[in-house]
Amino acid sequence: MVKKILSMLFLLVVIAFLYMPIVMIIIFSFSNRTDFTFANGFNFDAYISIFTDKNSGALLQAFKNTILIAVISSVVSTVLGTSAAIGINRLGKRMKRIVNNVNQLPVINSEVVMAVSLMVFFVTFKFPEGYLRLILGHIAFSTPYVVLNVMPKLVQMDNNVYEAALDLGATPVRALTSVVLPIISPGIVSGFLLAFTLSMDDFIITQINKGATTGIDTLSTYIYSDARIKGLSPYWFAVFSIIFVVVLAVVLFINLRKKSKGSQTGGIIA
C-alpha cells in the first residue's frame, strides 16, 4: 500500500512537471497580464484582444494558411499513401524492402536535414516560392505515415477476400473500392488524422521552406517570428490556451473512442 502511494506520488510529480507551464498559461490567460498575477482581476480581455489586436489580421491569415496547407496536404497524402500501400504490398520481396526503407527515411530522418534538403532541391529546380513548396514538403513528410498506418491493415487482410470478390464477378476496381477499401479503412482514417495533425503541428519544414519574400506564415512560424522577438503578450496566452484545450480534447476524444472500441492492443495513439 505504501509502495503504491509512493509510486502514485512520483507519477503525480512528473505529471505536474509536464503540465505546469500549460496550466499556468491557461489560468493566467484570464488575467490579461504576463507576470502571472491577477493584478487586473479576472477578465476575458486577452481573449477579446485576439479579435481586436493590431496583429489579429496576421494571426487569422496564419491560421487560414495552416488549415489550407493541412487540408490539401493531408488529403493528397492519404490518397497517395493508400494507393501506395496497396501497390507496395503486391511488389516482389526485394523491391518491397527497398521501397519500405526509403519510405522510412522521412520518418527517421532529422527534420532539419529533411527541410534543408527540400530547400536545396526547390532552389536547384527553381520551384516557385510559396504555397506549392510548402504543400509538396508537407506531403513528402506525412505520406510515409499514411503508408505505415495502412500497410498493417493490408497485411492482416485475407487476400482470398479480394480473390473471392473477383471470382464472384466484381471488376478489379469494384473489388478494391467495395471490398479492400472498407477493410483497410481504419488504417486510412488514422493515417489521415496523423497526416493532418503533423502538418498543422509542423514548424521546421515550414520555416525553412516558406521563403523570405512570400510573407506566408503558418501558426507556428508566426508564433516564432512574433513571440521570439517581443516575448509573449497577454494575447498569446489566450491563443495558446485555446490551442491547448482544442488539441488535448481532440487527442483525448480520439483515444478514448478507440479504446472503448477496443480495436488496438497495447499501442496508444496512432
Binding site: 501506395a84 501497390g87 507496395i88 534538403s117 506531403i139 473477383l166 478494391l176
Partner: peptide
Amino acid sequence: RIKLNRKVFGYPYILFLTIFVVLPLVLI
C-alpha cells in the same frame, strides 16, 4: 493481369519518393 494492376498503384508514390525524398538527399 490483376496482380500487375494492383502493383501499379504503388508507382506514383515510388516516383514521388524518388523526386521529393531521394533526390533532395542526393543533392545534399
